Structure formats: structure tokens, C-alpha cells
Computed example of a mutant assay.
Amino acid sequence: MAIADASTITLARQVGDQVTLKILGPVEATRDGCELALPGKKLQTMLAILLLSRGQVVSVDRLSFLLWGWNPPTTVDAQIYTYISRLRKRLSPEVELIRRAPGYRVDTKNAWVDIEVFEELAEQGRDRLAAGLFEEASQLLRAALGIWRGSALTNVTEYLTETELPALDEAWTTTTEYRIDAELALGLHRTLILELVGLVNRFPFRERLRVQLMAALYLSGRQAEALAVYEKGRVLLVEELGVDPGLDLVQAFRAVLDGDPGLFPLPGLRGERPAMRYRNA
């Protein structure tokens, strides 16, 4: 598939399909562009749980915990059945909710599901990055990240958020790191600095982002600032976590000191195919 067609295909699927299902932001469902009412946090949570199961059966016990925690109502089975029935009325026939012991599963058929499209585009982007096709990787990874509408699962129960949001946040962050790797390799370091400053402030213990910021600053002729980013990270790691900087961060420090961008642990800057460090995104 040509890279120029990737975003077009994604958008075509979203427009052409009758039903779209979204969890990368507030949980939402639409048909032909019109919003389908999902009144109440429990109904939104039920849909999100089923979509996150990727077509696997979710037991009634797990549904119960993610809806009510450790204190479900005595009528839990009846209430779960009611929520399933309400979703069926709104999503059928394009989406099928199937009873399978010990619980339920969803068959999204040809519906456009944002988490599925995100994962597909992110995987394609990582593959292009591994092949050294940095422009294509950047486009695909940007398309994947563009599907997000803010933080995921913003209108579900706290039990589902606590269980699933960390993995979704990790997927977003690692995909962002991949995209930045590709764009550093394309020589876009100056345009990345402001974004990276914000990301490092948001994720101060994430050493990969700190390495990327150091590289962007150094390549922009700001060596002293790159060293300051390292030192701030080193102090933070020692004082807050009691650990020394990791190998990549130390190597980035040496790259700045030696004035050799080829020493940065960013294979795209060395003309190498980068190793896939984060396959869980």
C-alpha cells in the first residue's frame, strides 16, 4: 500500500461505514455521522469494555467488576443484560453483541473502530521506521496519533479507567516517541524542540524523550541546553527514584560532550535501521 493512500483509506473507512465506535477520547458511537445516544456512564463503560476485548469473550464477573468494582448490586446479572440489550438496539445490525458463556463478546463486523485503526497505522509506521523509510513512518504515525481526541476513556467508570488507561497511555506515548525518532532522522529537530520540552515536563522519568530533546537541542546548536537537560534528568532520577541514568541517556550525554551526533542512541541519526524498542504500542 502506498503511504499516500494510508490516511485516505482510514478516512474513507470512517466515512463509508455506517457505524463508528470510538474510545480514544470520550466513548462515542455514530451512524452515518449522527451520534447514537449512549446515556449513562455504565452503558458507555460496557461498550468500551467489549471493544477493548478485541472480540474475545468478557466474563460476567469481569464486566461486573469493571462496572461496579467490589460492590456490585444484587441484580448484577439483570443489569448487565439490560445494558447489552440497550447497546444491541442502538448498534444492530452493523455491530453484533453475542452471548457466549461465561459472558459476552462483540463482533464489530465492518464498523470503524478507532482503537483498531490506531493500532493498524501505528504498526505500519513502526515497520516503515524499522526499514529506514522515515518520511513514510512519520506520516503513518501522525495519522495514528491524529485519531486520538484527547485522553482515552474519559466517560467510563473509575474501575475501567484504572485497569485499561495505563496501557492506552503507554501506546500513545510510545507511538509519539517513534514518530519523533522518524522526524529527527528527517532533520526536523528545530520544529520538535517545543513539543519535546512539553513531553519531558509531562513525563520527566521517561528517558527516551529526554534523549530526543537532547538530540533536538544539540542539532540546533544549543549544546549547553542539551547538557542541562541531561543534568536535570540525572538529578531527578537519583533524588526521586534512587537510580542512575540509563545507558541511552548516558550515551546521549557523551554525544553532546564529544560533539558527535552519531553517538546518540537514535539509529536514524546514524543512518541505521532502528531497533523496535517498544512493540507494545
Rank of each mutant, 00 (worst) to 15 (best):
P261L: 09
L50Q: 07
D248Y: 08
V57D: 04
M46E: 15
G271D: 07
A111C: 05
I147V: 11
F205P: 04
I49S: 02
G132Q: 13
E96I: 02
R31C: 01
I193F: 02
I147M: 08
L184W: 00
D77E: 11
L87I: 06
R179C: 02
T174D: 13
L209E: 00
L209R: 13
P73A: 00
E162C: 10
P26T: 04
Y278R: 10
L199P: 12
T30A: 10
Q223W: 05
L121D: 00
A101P: 11
L21A: 10
Y159C: 04
F118R: 05
Q56P: 12
R105V: 05
E28W: 05
Y81M: 09
W68N: 13
P39N: 00
G150N: 06
V197A: 03
L67H: 02
I80M: 05
E231F: 15
L129V: 09
E119Q: 07
R100D: 14
R62A: 13
T74H: 09
L241W: 01
R279Q: 09
S85V: 05
G125R: 15
T108I: 05
R222N: 03
Q139C: 15
V197I: 12
A4M: 05
S64L: 06
R270S: 14
I84W: 04
L133Y: 14
L121Q: 07
